[in-house]
Structures are given as structure tokens and as C-alpha cells.
Design a protein around this nucleic acid. Structure first.
Lengths: 137, 137
DNA sequence: AATAATGTATTCGCTATAGATACATTATTA
DNA sequence: TAATAATGTATCTATAGCGAATACATTATT
């Protein structure tokens, strides 16, 4: 299966932006995304740790943006919920009898970092407000 | 599990570049990458369809680059073996009662395309020869 | 005290991937 | 011509990763 945390997070954040500054609960978010509240809450923990959302416990609790949508960039959301690299890296220890196998790991690692830095720079140019505007247009 | 076709392909191609224009068989490549010959051959089919390698059947057969390493760019390798998008896209039909859910799909799709175009443009600036040089340095 | 939200842990099922195996096809070579 | 050794291809299996589902402790409101 594919990791959907970033698209789901963007969906969550856009929903919150749309209702800002009201609280929205995980049940409502789950309905919109067609998933279960528990999964929403797990993702919200990451978004909260990154300072992007606030969650309020208790009977009238819920979730809201921690800052204005125009002050949240997409790379912040991406970083908050993604721990894998954009390009896959092999995890086997290289065959030590082969010069290529020994050297290719570092090359791939550096290449991945370059691609990822670039993608994040690109994502940093779009704000959550941009996304909301585009969705509502 | 993670899709390792691109890193494995880069490894294969670098190995072939190093022995160019000699034939290398799938057994040798599998040893270097620590996988099985069948998996190598499956990937080689894709690389071959993209015109990046040639394979020769029969007793003295094997695999070699179809052109010089300096004329092969990394985006060509990536495209040859990758059919997924760089960022995940949700595949559920959106909740039609929610404006956000209805609009977010297109936004994500466009965003993914932008990020991917950019990454491929970046990969197109590096040649297989560059990778071989870096590995051997 | 009852209610309703988040936080968190656990279990389950599904899917995608690579591993493993087998064998047909093809070309060399003895 | 027969034996050999390579690719091409199909199939099955094991496993890892992900989200679904569930349960329940914790917390705050009413």
C-alpha cells in the first residue's frame, strides 16, 4: 500500500483552514476524507508536534489551525508527517567484493537528498491559503 | 514494502557502464545487488523497452548499454521503470457532500505533477557517466 | 455524574513487492 | 546435432507496510 499521510494531511489542513478558527472534530474530518477518526487523530498528533495545529481535549474539544493558513507552507506539512525519503534507498549491506555496490549507496543517498531538497523548496512556495483558494475556486 | 526499482536500475546501469561495451549476465548483476537473477531480468525488460540497454539471448548472451553512459540521463532511467507518482494520490471517490473533498483531488494531482516535473528536470541534468565517475572516485 | 472529545495501544486484513522456482526459447559450441 | 548456458516469462510464496477497526484511558464540559 502507498503512504497517504501527506495527501490526507493536506486534506485535513484545508478543512481546518476552511473553518478557521473554529474547532473541527476528528469524526467530521474522517467523514470528509472517508477514513476513520483514529487515523485522523494519529496524523493530527504529528501535525500538532510540528506546531501546525492545536487540539483541545474534553467534551467540546476538537482540532484547529495553530496559525493562519497564509502562514503555513506545504513543505511544513510534508515534513511534519513524512519520515521516508522521496526516492527509495536500498537497505541491504553492499556486496563488499564489488566496487559499484560499495560506491552506489552514497551516490544514491546524495541524489535523493538533492531531489528532496528541491521538492521541499518548491512546496515551500505554496501556502495552505493558496490551496484553500484553489479548492474553493 | 518499498519499490526499489529505480535504485536497483541505477545500480544495474552503473555496472553495465563500468563494463561497457562488454556483456554482463543477470547472474553477475544479481550478485552485486544481492538479489535474484529473475528480478534483474524483469527490470532489464523495462530498461530495454526504453532503449537504454540491449540484451542478447543464447549461450554467450547477456546485457549491455544500448548507448554511451554520457548519453543516458537519470530521468530516462527513472521513467523507464517507474509507473507510480512521486507523491501519493488518494484513490477513493471523494465525499460528494463536502466541497473540500471534491476540490482537493485536482489540487493534489496538479501539485504532484509540478513536483514530479521538477524532480525529473533535475534528474535529466545528471548522466550515467556522472554517476559512474562519482562511484569510482 | 454523564457526556463527548482527544490520546494511545493493539489487532487484523489487504496489497504491493521481492524472492524463489520452473521452464520455454534462443544461440553458441563441442 | 546435442549439450550448454543465456534471456524471457509465468507462477507461487513470504513478508513488510499501511490503514481499518476496536477498545479504552484521559480530559473537559455541562
Amino acid at each position: 500500500m502507498v503512504d497517504t499521510r501527506f495527501p490526507v494531511s493536506l486534506h485535513i489542513m484545508t478543512g481546518l483552514a476552511n473553518h478557521h478558527p473554529d474547532l473541527v472534530n476528528s469524526e467530521q474530518l474522517a467523514k470528509s476524507i472517508q477514513t476513520n477518526p483514529s487515523f485522523i487523530r494519529k496524523i493530527v498528533v504529528s501535525l500538532s508536534a510540528a506546531g501546525l495545529v492545536e487540539s483541545v481535549r474534553g467534551k467540546t474539544g476538537g482540532i484547529r489551525l495553530a496559525k493562519k493558513a497564509k502562514d503555513i507552507t506545504l513543505d511544513q506539512i510534508y515534513r511534519a508527517v513524512t519520515d521516508t525519503t522521496l526516492l527509495a534507498l536500498p537497505k541491504k549491506t553492499p556486496n563488499k567484493t564489488c566496487a559499484i555496490a560499495c560506491g552506489i549507496g552514497n551516490v544514491l543517498c546524495q541524489l535523493t537528498r538533492e531531489v528532496e531538497d528541491n521538492a521541499l523548496k518548491q512546496l515551500s512556495k505554496k501556502t495552505l491559503q493558496d490551496v484553500l483558494n484553489q479548492v474553493m475556486a
